[in-house]
Amino acid sequence: MMRSYSDKHNVQKKSYYNDRYFVAPQIPKEAVESDDVFANDLSVLKAKFEIQEAYIQKGQLVVYIDPKDNVSVLQTLRDELSYNFLSEHSAIDWLAKSGEFEIFYQMLSTSKRKRMRVKCFIKEKEVLKSVIGVYKSADWAEREMYDMFGVIISGHPYMKRLLMPDDWYDHPLRKTYPLHGDEVAQWYEIDKIFGKEYRDIIGPEERDSARVDVNDTYRFAHLNHEVPFGAEPSQEKTVTDYQEEGGVFIVKKLKKEDAKILKERY
């Protein structure tokens, strides 16, 4: 029997069935001239920089630039075209397709009430200049992007992983990284807390969040059959109502069936 093919470059979940005649429709891309404000923005940018592609999609201008121009384009957008916010900045992994990352800067102009997106492609090992000098909000956005994708940034004052631990192996949002973590990830906490020599004794970390072990009383509650932490599971029924005769101060033999339910809130 042939082993089924699995794509090593993209280990994310894929649809198990694809209609071979199905062609996904495209969200239309409108010409930039259809909006006066965006047309003006684009002409200012075109006069200074090389613009590879520009269109309007869902009411937002999308501009593809040369990655080397990123700082100066954003500087122009902020100072001349009054895009005063960098709302979001991250990357998209196209490594399997073309060996590139697509970087996007989501901009907002509060005075013009317009949003636009500046985009560029960089190669996997290519260095991207930091835009922190233009927008401070790029500080953590760039650190997160490095953490998640391994996009190398130059000129950032404190380029360190943001969400993952500093000694984490690989970058989790890449398409080659499996959802439940890789081989290294399943030993990370064991190595860190107990040491490598405990790998055989403890075993790899259980990364399947849906797994339920009925015999495990460390991690799973056994409702109505409760046993002490770590003891053998038992079939004996445990009563959960308050049992003490005479009760304690305030709680006097709590019976659930006698509990009163309020009809009105106020």
Partner: peptide, 30 residues
């Protein structure tokens, strides 16, 4: 459909934005 969208809403904390890049699959590409 294939395309991308960035939608911002005013959540109690501020601008909550969702950027979705769809490649026509049942799973968002990004």
């Amino acid at each position: 459909p294939v395309g991308e969208v960035y939608v911002a809403t005013e959540s109690p904390k501020g601008e909550l934005g969702f950027y979705i890049n769809s490649q026509g699959d049942p799973y968002p590409y990004r």
